[in-house]
């Protein structure tokens, strides 16, 4: 498997990481409320009824080095986004450890902003939530708004976000998230948002961020953007690390496996 980058400085080390989600299903399996109640009565200890365990990541280990851009590929639900969240320290590991250099940041387009607030307020709130100071936000405010292109069709930034189209909202979220420089940067499907014009702009911005960041992780279903940006790829399937190596090798194997 991957023995590249022997002499580099490690920035992220994943050591046998397991992640388990506990999902409250409301009732234990099938049946009515009374059935659920009787199950509660019968069961004593262990996992409480109405809770299902989803073992999303199963024993993944790897070491990432400074200057690497690592792609994560795999089918839907293979644990890619979950693994990123664990690296960012946002999801606790069930067992195993993730060691990181500094505080990795997850650049997601899903970061929750408030729909009832204006775009303007969301820019400030999002920036503060990422740990920027008020001065930094003020300094970059114009850039963020311009980059998102929200105001191209009128003064939308002063309207509540619930009035935005889904594409516009995603663009604003990406612009806010991309406004900060990061040591270890993780990007979750960000390249797929917005129209073609915005995609080109965001790809350029990601390349820029990559140059400043120590290590970049990219989750994407778009093999082309993985090939364009990454020099190493981890292939996850059912929560397990199937392959880890140079981009071309892993992506070709992945394409072969998924083509039939």
């Amino acid at each position: 498997m991957a023995e590249n980058n022997g002499g580099g400085v490690p920035t992220v080390i994943a050591d046998d990481v397991h992640i388990v989600y506990r999902v409250n299903t409301g009732s234990a399996g099938k049946g009515s409320a009374t059935a659920a109640l009787s199950k509660i009565m019968r069961k004593g200890k262990g996992d409480s009824p109405g809770v299902r365990r989803v073992h999303a990541v199963r024993g993944v280990s790897f070491t990432a080095y400074r200057g690497e851009a690592i792609g994560l590929i795999g089918s839907n639900g293979s644990g890619k986004s979950t693994l990123l969240r664990a690296i960012a320290g946002l999801l606790p590991c069930e067992s195993g450890r993730v060691y990181t250099d500094g505080q990795p940041s997850l650049l997601g387009v899903n970061a929750a902003l408030m729909n009832d607030l204006t775009g303007e307020r969301n820019v400030v709130l999002g920036g503060l939530a990422m740990g920027m100071t008020r001065e930094q936000i003020q300094e970059r405010y114009e850039d963020i708004v311009d980059f998102s292109g929200i105001n191209e069709k009128g003064d939308f930034i002063s309207l509540p976000m619930r009035t935005y189209s889904s594409g516009m909202a995603a663009r604003l979220r990406f612009s806010i998230a991309a406004a900060k420089d990061h040591d270890v940067l993780m990007i979750d499907e960000a390249l797929a948002t917005g129209d073609r014009k915005f995609q080109v702009r965001s790809e350029a911005r990601i390349r820029e961020l990559r140059e400043k960041a120590g290590t970049v992780f990219l989750v994407s279903h778009n093999n082309k953007s993985i090939r364009d940006t990454c020099d190493r790829v981890l292939w996850l399937e059912k929560g397990e690390l199937l392959m880890d190596g140079p981009t071309e090798e892993v992506v070709s194997a992945y394409e072969k496996a998924t083509s039939h």
Binding site: G6, G7, I13, R97, Y99, T100
Partner: peptide, 30 residues
Amino acid sequence: GALATSKPPSEDAGLTPAELARKYGLSVSG
């Protein structure tokens, strides 16, 4: 990528992840 693969094997090869983390001052995430 080319640069990465051409690096010589390192003296870190024998270290466990925890030791490696300690050596480079990495902290447990989260």
